[in-house]
Computed example of a mutant assay.
Amino acid sequence: MSETTTDERSARPGEPGRALLQMQNVTLRFGGVVALNDVSFEIRQGEILGLIGPNGAGKTTCFNALTGVYQPTEGQVVFDGTPLGRRKRFQINRLGIARTFQNIRLFQNMTARENVLVGADSHHRAGVVQSLFRLPRHRRETREGNALADELLELMDLGHRADDLARNLSYGEQRRLEIARALATKPKLLCLDEPAAGFNPVEKQRLMDLIRRVRDLGNTVLLIEHDMKLVMGVTDRIVVLEFGKKIAEGLPAEIRDNPAVIAAYLGVDDASEEEL
């Protein structure tokens, strides 16, 4: 977990902040289907950016393009000043981008702590010989990994479930465990793909609090989410996609009052802002 710096605190609503990630005119085609069409936006260091739009808008495709699952057909993704190019997913993760998925992807027969340690291990450098003979680097990385795992489990309110198998956790606990594992890779940018899916209102409020805590610890967050109350309540800025194109970008209040966004999201032309 990184400490919040002055530069990171400056990246708050209405303030410029430093661009941590830039989508630069990204187009992604699958045969004759254009999934993303000339999409450009930036994520500023220390903010929570929401990426929203109706079903089929291209939100998850956009996630996949910036995390290395797909390669842009045109344009590029620049992260922390470095074009990602054709880097593989594990290389992008080591640069500092971590993500969760719509469908939970945990190691169900491993404990909660062991799942988080998988994330922590992505930055370990001890080789087979060092691990086999428990040499100093291996012992140090083991201590540091366990300490980080315990810290993140506490952050996600899972400290009391550390030794339980992932399969025995509740749905909401598994969602939070997946976030803890992603944070264990020590990302500069945490991408959350519909983390509130299947949550009840109490769990959604708890998730909002957790996302704010993650940001306040110095992390930058990109959030895909269908629940507009959650998005409006937790994000600093919002980007809106429709049919693979960006149709709006701005502060939550600006997006809420944007007629084009309301029409696109609800599929009607005369929707009231209360509905959004």
Results as ranks from 00 to 15, higher is better:
E225W: 07
A166Q: 00
L276G: 13
L190D: 15
I104L: 02
P201L: 09
S10I: 02
A11F: 03
N219A: 15
L177E: 00
Y171H: 05
V221A: 02
L66V: 15
D150T: 05
A147P: 04
E74Q: 11
A147T: 03
H226V: 00
Q71S: 09
T4E: 10
R94N: 13
A166N: 00
D80Q: 12
P201V: 11
D150C: 01
F107A: 00
H226M: 00
Q102S: 13
E74I: 03
L183P: 09
G218P: 15
R29L: 05
R137A: 08
P187K: 06
E151W: 01
P259R: 04
I179Y: 05
M23D: 12
S122T: 11
Y171M: 00
G68N: 09
M228W: 05
G159Q: 00
V34A: 14
I224E: 12
L20C: 10
L51P: 06
G31D: 12
E274R: 04
G53F: 02
L266Q: 08
V116I: 10
R181D: 11
T6Y: 11
G172T: 06
T220C: 12
Q108T: 10
P259A: 14
E47H: 02
R99N: 06
G56F: 08
I48F: 07
D7A: 08
V34Q: 15
N115V: 00
